[in-house]
């Protein structure tokens, strides 16, 4: 893929990347910075993209890594294993956007990609480098915490 081809593809997907980063990081400036950094890193490493048809999941994976770097920089976050038993009630009391932002990172990545950024289960698995079964499990867990009744038919 050449710089020019990447530029065209990045123009097409930038809104989707921004939407993902916005929910994942919870702030417009941080989301814009993350997309900026993602596209920059993509220009530096697109030589490695052997199959252009995987461009969307490839650049989304870069974005998730950039967002995770930012989250690590900010603070230590709870992991899935540390969720209290009353987590569902706590999430239920929050506005949906706040609840999504407070999900453990592993769950948030899945739910943001699947239900807010329009990735299929297979694409989500590829972007996150996870087996589809793991994505499916995390998806169920996240939806349960958020009290959202969404199935595959509700993908964006």
């Amino acid at each position: 893929m050449t710089d020019l081809e990447l530029a065209h593809r990045a123009e097409e997907i930038r809104g989707r990347l921004y939407r993902t980063a916005l929910l994942y990081l919870g702030g417009e400036a941080a989301a814009l910075d993350a997309v900026d950094e993602t596209v920059y890193r993509a220009f530096l490493s697109h030589r490695k993209l052997r199959q252009p048809e995987h461009f969307a999941t490839w650049i989304t994976r870069i974005l998730i890594n950039v967002c995770n770097d930012e989250l690590r920089r900010r603070k230590r976050e709870p992991s899935m294993a540390e969720l209290p038993e009353t987590a569902a009630e706590q999430f239920d009391a929050l506005p949906l956007r706040d609840a999504v932002e407070r999900l453990p990172r592993e769950l948030r990545a899945v739910v943001v990609l699947r239900y807010f950024s329009g990735y299929t289960l297979a694409e989500t698995a590829e972007a996150l480098g996870l087996p589809p079964g793991t994505v499916s499990t995390r998806q169920r867990k996240a939806l349960s915490l958020l009290r959202l009744e969404l199935g595959d038919e509700k993908e964006v």
Partner: peptide
């Protein structure tokens, strides 16, 4: 979420210039 940030307009050329 459909409303885009204004900074996205020149994001790609900015990133390309930085990469170069």
């Amino acid at each position: 979420l459909d409303a885009q940030a204004p900074g996205l307009d020149d994001l790609v050329p900015r990133a390309l210039a930085r990469a170069r």
